[in-house]
Amino acid sequence: MSARDEILDRIRTILSRPELSFPPVEAPPLTADERMTVTHAEGDAAALARRFGQELEKLYGSYEILSSAIEVRLALINRLTDWAAEEDAARKGPKPETFGQERMVLSWAPAQLPIDGLAEALADMQWQLVAPDKLTSPEALEKVRFVRFGVTGVEAAFASTGSMLVVSGPGTNRSASLLPFRHIALIPFSRLYATMEAWLTERRAAGELVDLLRTRAGWNMITGPSKSADIEMNLTLGVHGPKYVHAILFDDTRPVISEAERAEIARLMALDDDE
C-alpha cells in the first residue's frame, strides 16, 4: 500500500468513529453569503484611490493620483528622476559598478502596461525600459542584477488594505516587482476594487475565478515595501524585495480627451491648415 493510500485510509477510518469528539459530524462549509468582508472601503473610484494611497502610505509606501492617463508618463519619469537623485545624494562611498544598468528600468512587456508609449517616453529621457523574454538562468539574471527600478501594472488593486495583485504570464514577469530596490506600480481606476473580497466576488460571479487562478502559475498580492521585524521587533525595510513601493493611480474611466478638448484641437488644426 502506498503512503498516500495508507494516510488517506487511516484518516477515513478515524473520521468514521461515531464517538470522535473532533471534528463535529456536522461541519458545513463557509458559504459565500455568510463569509465576512474583513476590512471595508467605500466611495467612488477617486475615493477608493485615496484610500488605497492612505493605506499604502501607512506601510511606508508612497502614491500619487492622476486625473488622466496622459499624465502617467511624465509622473513616472519624474519619479524615476527624483529617486535617482535621492540615491545619488544618499550615497556615502564611491559609486558602485552597475555594469551599464544604472539607467535601466526592469519592466513588464510594454504591451502589458496600462499606458502606451512608455518605452519611447522614457528613452527620450535616457531611461531604458528592459523587459527580458527569459529570466530563468543565472546569466540572464546577471544582466538585470543591478537594475534599481521596476515598473509593472496590476491585475487588480484593493483599496481597503492598499494591496496590489500581480500575476505571471506572457509579458508579465514576476521579477520586476521583486528584484529591484524600487517598484512603481501603475494602477488604472478600472482595476481598483474596494476590497479583495469584492474582487473575488466579482470573479466568482462571472464563473471565472478558478480558471483564472489556474491558468497562471504565479500570483502575488503585494501590500507595501518588503520589511522585517526580526531584529527585536525593529522595523527594517527592503530586506529582500523592494524597499520603496510607489503607486501611480490614474483615472482611465473618462475618455482621454473630452469632447470639448477634441473640438478645440480640431479648431486649432483647422487654423493651421489655413496658414
Binding site: 530563468t136 505571471s168 508579465t172 514577469n173 514576476r174 521579477s175 489556474r214 497562471r216 502559475a217
Partner: peptide, 13 residues
Amino acid sequence: MTNGPRRPGDTDG
C-alpha cells in the same frame, strides 16, 4: 501563490 511550474510564455518562475 504558486500554481505549478512556469507556463509556456512565462518569463520567470
